[in-house]
């Protein structure tokens, strides 16, 4: 008995006991991912669920100019997983096109963001730029469960695919909306398969720490409630590529002052431009700007 109850053993029991206890702890990580709308197929223009906006017929994409396919990605524990992606444009021209890699927000699936992807396919003129959009693990019909590392792996899988089609770094533009700003910043700051040429961030969040601080009012550590390490405000410091930041002044989800302005301020790269959209909230920046103006500001940035 004397040997069992020495300090070393008590320490070991306490260590393993606490790990066992805390392994079942509540965390808010999964709350970041909203995959509640389950679908059995992608419907694109025929999708009748809630959307931020719907474009008129002039924005229609011909079937021959849209491809839907699967990519091989990896989970956070390095298991293979298939995710869905769609390409808007002529796939045979990828090697000579400029491509916008669109990283969508935290909600649902590509059907929800389809109108936004179509809008990007009309920047400049119809199909002037190719657009690649994907559903992260656990989103839409993509396999797996959402995770922070999964986001990065999935977007990198999309880059691998573009690279395999002959796209060069100089013609890759990444566009991150809301949660999509996380893989956009991460992979722009720490290139894996490709090094993006330009970065567009719409309504980005600064970090998990800011989300927690905004919620509590106090400067609480993010680790109190989440294990997410997303930190765009720090990663953007490593991004030298040109940045276009777009944020609604009335964004009541990701506050423009505590999130967007911090990310924008911390970018010290070669060029940056800010578009603070008066009166816009989190989801309606393209509507508030007007589709024509929205496309034009993107065109100006891409061609700058």
């Amino acid at each position: 008995m004397k040997h069992i109850f020495n300090f070393k053993n008590i320490g070991l029991v306490a260590f393993f006991g606490s790990n066992l206890l805390f392994s079942a702890c509540l965390r808010l990580d999964s709350n970041l991912y909203n995959t509640s709308d389950k679908i059995s197929e992608y419907k694109w223009d025929n999708y009748t669920g809630i959307q931020d906006f719907k474009l008129d017929a002039s924005y229609q994409i011909q079937d021959s100019m849209q491809a839907v396919f699967r990519l091989q990605s990896k989970t956070s524990d390095n298991q293979s997983v298939k995710i869905y992606a769609t390409y808007l444009g002529d796939m045979a021209q990828i090697a000579t096109d400029t491509v916008i890699l669109y990283c969508h927000g935290n909600k649902w699936h590509m059907d929800f963001y389809w109108q936004r992807a179509k809008l990007l396919a009309h920047v400049g003129q119809k199909h002037r730029y190719g657009v690649l959009m994907l559903d992260y693990q656990g989103y839409g019909l993509s396999e797996g469960k959402p995770s922070e590392e999964g986001l990065y792996n999935d977007v990198d899988a999309a880059m691998q695919w573009l690279k395999s089609k002959g796209l060069s770094n100089e013609r890759l533009i990444i566009y991150g909306f809301s949660m999509g700003s996380a893989p956009s910043c991460e992979l722009a700051a720490n290139p894996r398969s490709m090094r993006v040429q330009k970065v567009i961030l719409e309504a980005p969040f600064a970090s998990a720490a800011v989300m927690v601080a905004d919620g509590s009012g106090l400067a609480l550590p993010a680790s109190f409630v989440t294990n997410l390490k997303i930190d765009n405000a720090e990663e953007i410091k490593k991004v030298n590529q040109p940045l276009c930041w777009i944020h609604g002044t009335n964004d009541d989800f990701l506050n423009i002052l505590t999130h967007g302005e911090v990310v924008y301020k911390n970018h010290t790269g070669s060029f940056k431009i800010a578009h603070r959209v008066q009166g816009a909230d989190h989801s309606n920046v393209p509507i508030s700007l007007g589709f024509e103006n929205y496309r034009q500001l993107l065109l100006n940035f891409i061609t700058h």
Partner: peptide
């Protein structure tokens, strides 16, 4: 928009 925020806001609310 409300629905979008409703889910993600749990992140803040608990905090």
């Amino acid at each position: 928009n409300k629905l979008f925020i409703k889910h993600t806001s749990c992140f803040f609310a608990v905090v």
